[in-house]
């Protein structure tokens, strides 16, 4: 009972704090503090509800138990992280994005190819490509190679479509100016069209980060060596070790956000000139 009351008190307190915070003039501090307060309140309410209502830890472990599990099984989590994120997702991400970039350059050079590839690419990007996972496992074996392969296929089309669109972003006026400078195809590409395409390319890169992790994890449901995040999640659910599952999810969440954040940081450095970035310089 005491836990439930505490939960309600924290809820009310967090709510009041957020209303007060959002009423203040907007600054970096308030726009950071409000979501943090919201998140912390949710976690505390979760803890209080689990303890107050005596929910079985098999159904929903409290955050403290998950934290303890992370501290205890650090080496397992690290092993899975290396297997899934570094070997599977990251290598596939790099290969897939580079391949898509190359094909996009080709498609840009040859209009015929672009007219043909772009509708097909848009179509394929909407398909449930994750379904290819069992086939990739069959072709490339249980280890990380098959996970990298499915990631390559998953990130390829969003990246391709975005890059091709980006390469069309430079305006006719700017291209004409390059021609009056006597610049050839490659000079125009490197000095004008690639920089102009960067916002689109980074959009594709950001979409691809999430897809890469999803692909690597789900592919492990179809078969994997005895390590990896997807493997650990599916087997731990079977053993009802839900605290380990939540610990893996926490790692996946942190890895996913860090991956996305890293790409977003590089984007900010590369496309500092773009209107969407200029507003938040300081």
């Amino acid at each position: 009972m005491i836990w439930l009351l505490l939960g309600i008190a924290v809820w009310g307190g967090g709510w009041a704090l957020n209303i007060w915070l959002s009423g203040r003039p907007v600054s970096t501090a308030t726009s950071l503090a409000v979501p943090v307060v919201f998140g912390l309140t949710l976690v505390v309410i979760w803890e209080c509800l689990v303890r107050g209502l005596e929910i079985s830890p098999i159904l929903l472990p409290p955050p403290t138990a998950i934290g303890a599990r992370v501290a205890v099984s650090g080496d397992i989590l690290w092993e899975d992280f290396v297997q899934t994120v570094i070997k599977g997702a990251l290598s596939g991400y790099v290969i897939g994005c580079l391949a898509a970039f190359g094909v996009a350059l080709l498609a840009d050079r040859f209009v015929f190819l672009r007219r043909g590839l772009l509708p097909v690419g848009n179509f394929v990007a909407a398909l449930p490509i994750i379904g290819l996972a069992p086939i990739m496992v069959m072709w490339f074996g249980f280890d990380w190679q098959s996970k990298a392969a499915i990631v390559v296929v998953m990130v390829f089309f969003p990246m391709l479509v975005n890059t091709v669109q980006g390469l069309l972003a430079a305006e006719t006026m700017q291209r004409d100016l390059m021609r009056t400078y006597g610049a050839g195809y490659w000079t125009t590409l490197v000095k004008l069209r690639l920089p102009a395409a960067m916002p689109f390319i980074f959009n594709g890169l950001k979409i691809a980060t999430t897809l890469a992790l999803i692909g690597a994890i789900v592919a492990e449901f179809f078969g994997s060596p005895i390590r990896g995040m997807g493997f650990r999640i599916s087997t731990s659910v079977g053993q009802l070790a839900l605290d380990l599952v939540w610990a893996e999810i926490l790692v996946a969440a942190v890895a996913g956000s860090a991956f996305y954040g890293a790409v977003a940081l590089i984007e900010r450095a590369v496309t500092f000139w773009h209107p969407s970035q200029r507003g938040r310089a300081r």
Binding site: T210, V218, F221, I233, V237, V245, I249, A252, F259
Partner: peptide
């Protein structure tokens, strides 16, 4: 932020 998390990982649970 919820979209940078590989949500499908929670599916089995």
């Amino acid at each position: 932020a919820s979209q940078t998390i590989p949500i499908l990982a929670i599916a089995p649970m």
